[in-house]
Design a protein around this nucleic acid. Structure first.
Lengths: 231, 231
DNA sequence: ATTTAGCTCAAGTTTTTTGTTGAGATAATG
DNA sequence: CATTATCTCAACAAAAAACTTGAGCTAAAT
C-alpha cells in the first residue's frame, strides 16, 4: 500500500518514504491540507541558517547539500540531501530557526509541511514519530562522527572520508561528482580548495582514485578506508 | 531621535527607516525580542515564492532583486530591493506564503521579524501601521503599472522603462548595472535575452544610451521617456 | 629547533557562463 | 495576406569562475 497525496494543482505525488506509509487516512489528510509543493531551482536555498521557520521540508526529487556557514565565505558541508529525506526537522519540536543552510544541487521538488501538522501527527501516531526520532538519531550520530573527524583527523583522512561518502551515493546518483566543485569537496573535507586539489592529485598518483573530468572513481577502496582510519 | 536596536551579538544596528522612528520603547523592545539578524550572501534567496512564512524581512544593507517565477526557467523581475525596505510584508496580515522570490545581488544584512510582533505593533501604533499601509499602496500601484506595461507596451517601451528604473537607483548605488546581467535586464523587460541585447545595441546606435562594459549610461533621457510612453 | 601539516598568495590554465549576432520560425495585427 | 514584433536556434566571442601548481609562511608537534 502506498500513500498517495494529491496536491492542489492535481499533480499526483507518490510519497515513497517509509515513514509516510504509517499514516491513517485522516492523518494523510491533515498533512495534505497543510502542505505545499515547490520547485526549487538549482542553486536556490532550501533553508537559510538562522532564519525563522514554521515548517519542515521533505525532498521528493533532486539533490541538495546541507552546510553550516561561518564567518567570511567559509562553509562546512554536512551532507547530501536525497529524495525521501527531511530538511529542517529540528524546527518541528523545538527550535524556530534553521540550524543550517541548504541549497539545491539540481532542481528539487519539495514538500513544505507546516510544523503544527507534523507535530499533531506525531502526537497521535507513535509509529510515525518513531520514524522521525530515528532520523534525529541518525543525524545526531552523523554529527558526532563529523565532529570526531574535524577534531582529530587530518586532511588526508577527511578527504578520503569525503570521497567514500560521495562514492556511496553514486549507485543512486551516477552524476553526483559532476554536481560538486573542488570547493564543495574542500568544504566537505574542511580544507582549503588548493589543499583539496593537491590531495586529489596525490590520491590519483597513488592509484587510490581516478580523475576523469569532474568524475572521481574509487580504485582502491581498502586503502582509502585505511587512510580514513589512521590519518 | 533614532531608534537603536541592539542585536543579540551586540552588533548595534541603527534602523534608519522612518517607520521605525514612531515606535515606543516598549514596541522597540517587542520587535527587538522577536527578531534575528542574518547575513545573506550574494546569490542567497531571501524569499522563495510559495514557501511558508512566519516573518517579514527588513533589509538593512545590500541590494536584492524581487521576481516572480514561471514555468521552465522563466522569471519576471519586479523590483530592486534597497536598504530600508521590507520583503514579504504580505505575510504579516494575511497570506502565510511568500508571493514572490527574491535573491541577494550583494551580501545583505537583513532583519527577520516574526509576524506576531509586527502584527501586535500594528494593532497598538496607528502611525506605524500607516507607514506599513503606505508601503502596500506603493507596491500595489507599482504592480498595476507593471501589469499595464506587460499587457500593453512592446519591447522597446519595456526596455526603456527598465533602463530608466535602474538608472534612477544609480545615484545611491553607483554599481547597480554591474550587478545585473543581460538576463536580469531581459527579465525586467519581459523579453528574451537575445532581444534584450539587440534592443540595447539599437538604443546605443540611436545615441539614447552608452554601453561601457556592463555599465549603462542614459544619454537621452527625454527620448527614452518618449519610447516608454508611445512605443 | 626542526619537521610536519596545512594555509595563503600569486600566476597561469581550463572550463563554464554570459554576451553577441544573424538566420529563420511563429504568431498576432492591420 | 502582408507586415511587424518577437521568439528560438545555432554559432561564436568575451568574460568570469573554477581549477591547478608552486612557493613561502605559520603554528603545532616532535
Amino acid at each position: 500500500m502506498k500513500t498517495i497525496i494529491h496536491t492542489d494543482n492535481d499533480f499526483i505525488c507518490d510519497i515513497q518514504a517509509p515513514c509516510f506509509q504509517t499514516l491513517s487516512p485522516e492523518e494523510v489528510e491533515l498533512v495534505r491540507s497543510s502542505k505545499t509543493q515547490i520547485l526549487f531551482r538549482k542553486g536556490d536555498n532550501l533553508t537559510k541558517q538562522g532564519a525563522f521557520t514554521s515548517y519542515t521540508l521533505f525532498l521528493i526529487k533532486g539533490l541538495a547539500k546541507q552546510y553550516i556557514e561561518g564567518d567570511g565565505n567559509k562553509s562546512y558541508n554536512l551532507r547530501i540531501i536525497r529524495p525521501g529525506e527531511f530538511v529542517g526537522l529540528s524546527a518541528i519540536f523545538q527550535s524556530n530557526t534553521f540550524d543550517y543552510s541548504s541549497v539545491a544541487l539540481t532542481d528539487c521538488q519539495v514538500f513544505l509541511i507546516e510544523k503544527e501538522a507534523i507535530n499533531r501527527v506525531c502526537m497521535q501516531n507513535g509509529v510515525f514519530t518513531t520514524h522521525i526520532v530515528r532520523r534525529y538519531i541518525e543525524q545526531n550520530s552523523n554529527l558526532y562522527e563529523k565532529l570526531q573527524t574535524v577534531l582529530y583527523k587530518q586532511m588526508n583522512g577527511r578527504m578520503a572520508e569525503t570521497l567514500l561518502y560521495i562514492d556511496a551515493l553514486k549507485s543512486e546518483n551516477h552524476e553526483i561528482f559532476q554536481l560538486l566543485s573542488r570547493k564543495d569537496l574542500a568544504d566537505f573535507a574542511a580544507t582549503s580548495i588548493e589543499s583539496a586539489v593537491k590531495l586529489l592529485k596525490s590520491f590519483e598518483k597513488d592509484e587510490l582514485i581516478r580523475l576523469n573530468e569532474k568524475d572521481i572513481e574509487i580504485v582502491n577502496h581498502a586503502s582509502l578506508l585505511e587512510i580514513v582510519k589512521h590519518g
